[in-house]
Simulated assay, not measured.
Amino acid sequence: MFELETYSLVNILGLALGIIFGFIAQKNQFCFSGSIKDFLQIKSTKRAASVIMAMIVAVISTQIISNYFEIDLTQSAYFKKDINYFAIIVGGALFGAGMMIADGCSSRSIVKFAQGDSNALITLIFIAIFAYTTTKGVLFEIINPFINNPTLIEISKTIDNFQLNIYVVLAVLFVLLYTFTKKVKRVFSLYDGVIVGLLIGAAWFVTGYIGSESMEKEIQVQAISFVYPSAKTLELFTYYQVNEFSFGVCLVIGALVGTFVSTLFNKKYSFGCTANKTINKVKYNMIGGAMMGVGGIMAIGCTVGQGLSGLSTLVFSSFLAIISIFVSGYFTGKYLLKKDKLAMCFIFEWEDENKKKSKQIDFQI
């Protein structure tokens, strides 16, 4: 009987997880930056509730799986020894601003491109290029001295990169979920958040448990993230003779495939849009993508990488990163809204609220 090497099996499972992520993210337009945009524009909390639900399920599933299968989460990048909180905060701020300027974070750009928004490809390319140059290219000489600054690292050591109490974290998240939903019946519509959260736990299982059996190659303990994997995907297709597929690259490819398949059944969102015709969309995609590429590396992850995967480990630096991303994204969004440059394509509102509202929002496609 044909048997796959563990490394290959992990990659195939990564592809499968990416396909599921892309499919569900396209179907319900799951998006962290979009949840901020919805609240700023129409005070809708529907997508924000989905994000919080994903966080809750990610934390619970990850902790259950890691404890039951004895997966050492401290081997992941989120538990970096010489952590620099200043780099985490600055990187998070860059990423948060960039995702609002480009109208979507890294995972959202993957979904938007695969569902028909060609401008999102520009964002993806710039995320990949700038993430790559920050880790191995010309920006490495500029960014690395700041990330690994001995003085900043020493100051950061005054607060250990500890794991927060799971009950405290869940209590805060459930309060937020209640605040965003208000009605119990609305919780049952947040199945996209449940599935995305379960995918985080599944990713830890694939790399941390199945991957630990790999004898041919070492597999890093990781979950779902899209900034550095986007850079590795670009590297693979650029230098294919000296590179190979990895779990992260397979996630990116899978998300593209899953999104495209979803558009065959869910054509409503199969195109892109801008807030108004005066916006130089390409310029915003380039700037936002570049900021996310650099910021994602500095913050050790994106809205999914830190906001879900990192947060699921309960490590302090991940909470610092996602808070930084949110604060920066929120105020950048407010500024763009004031300047009438915050994209508005579709209305994401609770079904019971949709029935009440008769006022139509003017948006252009």
Rank of each mutant, 00 (worst) to 15 (best):
I71P: 02
F174I: 09
V304H: 06
L311G: 00
F316N: 11
S324C: 05
V282Q: 12
F363I: 01
M55R: 05
Y239I: 00
T74L: 12
K46N: 11
L190F: 00
L308T: 13
D352H: 08
K283Y: 03
G293C: 09
G18E: 01
E235S: 15
K217V: 02
T332P: 05
M292G: 02
G208V: 12
K268P: 02
Q115W: 10
K43I: 09
T303R: 03
V169D: 00
Q41H: 07
T313W: 07
A54E: 02
E5Y: 11
V90D: 01
L311C: 06
G305R: 05
I322L: 09
M99D: 06
E213N: 15
L314F: 12
V10D: 10
G34I: 04
F79N: 05
K357W: 05
I122D: 05
F331P: 04
K338Q: 12
Q241S: 15
S270A: 15
N161K: 08
D38S: 06
S118L: 14
N148R: 05
I64T: 04
N28Q: 14
R108E: 14
I36C: 00
S50L: 06
A290D: 09
K183H: 14
S109F: 04
V184L: 15
S318L: 01
S35L: 05
I200N: 03
L176E: 07
F69W: 13
Y228P: 00
V90P: 02
T158H: 13
D192W: 07
A128T: 11
T181I: 14
V168N: 09
I147H: 07
F226S: 13
L236A: 03
K183F: 10
V327R: 05
V327C: 03
G193S: 10
N165M: 12
K182Q: 14
M286G: 00
L176V: 09
G201K: 10
L199S: 04
F146M: 01
D352R: 01
C302T: 08
Q115E: 12
V257Q: 06
E213H: 15
G116L: 13
E5I: 07
I159R: 13
G296L: 09
P229H: 08
M99S: 02
V194P: 04
K27D: 08
Y7A: 10
N67I: 02
G254D: 09
E3C: 00
I323R: 02
M298G: 04
Q220S: 12
L264F: 08
Q220N: 15
S50F: 04
L124M: 13
A54M: 01
V111D: 00
M344Q: 06
V252Y: 08
L170Y: 06
S328V: 06
D352E: 14
F226N: 09
N148V: 01
Y7K: 09
L152P: 02
L139K: 10
K182D: 11
A203N: 09
A16I: 15
A49E: 10
L17M: 14
K339R: 15
T263D: 03
L170M: 13
Q222A: 14
I279K: 10
I219Q: 01
K359N: 00
G193R: 04
N276R: 10
V206C: 03
G258W: 11
F245L: 13
F331L: 10
